[in-house]
Design a binder for these strands. Structure first.
Lengths: 225, 225
DNA sequence: TCAAAAGTGTTAATAGTACACCCATGA
DNA sequence: TCATGGGTGTACTATTAACACTTTTGA
């Protein structure tokens, strides 16, 4: 059977991860200062080559774990980049994935030894190859996704205040929102539950902590923010 | 420089085209009854292998042209399928593309000699491999895209009646729409221009023919249907 | 006592939905 | 003359957007 395919060429296939985090009111991306060729010294996304024994999706999960130590992370494909000369070294076809992680939970040691660090999305350094485009596509994906599905919570700690949640959505959409309208929306979604815990770190008065309840969401999965 | 990549495996990379057409009030897909292995005799999407000298996007355009004779077709990537055993013959990573074509303009001879034919979207035969999934993803893509950008016109002749346009959108969304509300929406979009031509084929009275004006659209690209 | 963030409702504007009849024509 | 598809407007409902003050408390 293999004879049928044999006349066609084969390619390196890689995955690149656009890793979103949220901290101090800003969306951030985890980027590598490359200490390897090609383009050593430049900034890039974390990537890696697909191997024989893994699916492309699995490769993306593996690469993310290599960098952050995290498993079972929310990831989704955002596009495939296949220009002949996109990688100046050899031809590589790359599949880009968006990952949403809680910025407090990654393995700092691993990240350091990959020479990686968090960069605010609104002041990124120039990136190698077509990684800039990948970031733009990922951001467009994230904005669309975040408005209709509760993926934003992936970026927050389990317990969060409504101000934190609003800051997150303001960062995602890049615009200010009205506090009362925002809270009205939240109040309509039963799966965003108020706990009786209070966060005193953000204000003197203290703010109620909320939690996203996955089970309740699945019963009535209507989300809009 | 090539040494850096050398330790990694290479893969066949293919493209598969989900080709949408619209005819007699129905969305249709152009499918192949395979007269080649593997799975000879089953139905599948039109596909082909990416070659050394072309980008993945170019491969998709080429494959579409091989089947339909059409160039400069509206196509967009909908996803990449990379499971290890998705193709039972050999490992192939496939990038799926949606194409929107005017069902009256393709090259019938080419299509026939590929053993291809149009199938109504709501009564598709079983498809090989993961092509069923690709179709579902393409349809989801198309519904999302068609609601916010004027891609539907790709499926219609240059001149069309409002009834044809409405039938198209009813087919895309799979639900009936209100004629007066639909026309109210259309009237708000200046780039859907009424011509002074009349189509008498659909009714005794005759219906005004409209045209999508690309230039006008670019000046005020607000679309919603 | 005051600075700083938390919390809380109402109104106006807009967008969306429901709905029914007359028109023009060719057969 | 009648069957067929073409064409038109209004009232209601739901959603979204705009807007400002009081509360709590630690420093």
């Amino acid at each position: 059977m293999a004879t049928y395919y044999g006349i066609n060429p084969k390619f390196y296939v890689s995955v690149d991860c656009i890793i979103f985090g949220f901290d101090k009111g800003c969306l951030k991306l985890l980027l590598l200062k490359r200490n390897f060729e090609p383009q050593k010294g430049s900034w890039s996304l974390m990537g890696g080559f697909v191997q024989e024994d893994e699916s492309v999706d699995e490769a993306a999960q593996r690469v993310l774990k290599e960098l952050t130590g995290l498993e079972n992370v929310y990831m989704e494909q955002v596009g495939t980049y296949g220009d002949v000369h996109r990688d100046p070294g050899e031809r590589v076809i790359s599949v880009a994935y968006s990952a949403l992680i809680n910025i407090n939970e990654y393995d700092r040691e691993l990240v350091d030894c990959h020479n990686a660090s968090w960069n605010a999305l609104d002041s990124l350094p120039p990136l190698v190859f077509d990684h800039q485009q990948m970031v733009e596509q990922a951001l467009a994906w994230f904005r669309r996704k975040a408005s209709s599905e509760p993926v934003g919570f992936e970026l927050l700690p389990e317990l969060f205040t409504l101000t934190q949640l609003q800051n997150l959505y303001e960062a995602i959409y890049g615009k200010r929102m009205d506090k009362r309208n925002f809270r009205k929306q939240v109040a309509m979604m039963d799966f965003i539950e108020k706990t009786d815990l209070i966060d005193k770190t953000g204000s003197k008065r203290g703010a109620a902590l909320y939690r996203f309840n996955e089970k309740t969401y699945r019963m009535a999965p209507k989300f809009k923010l």
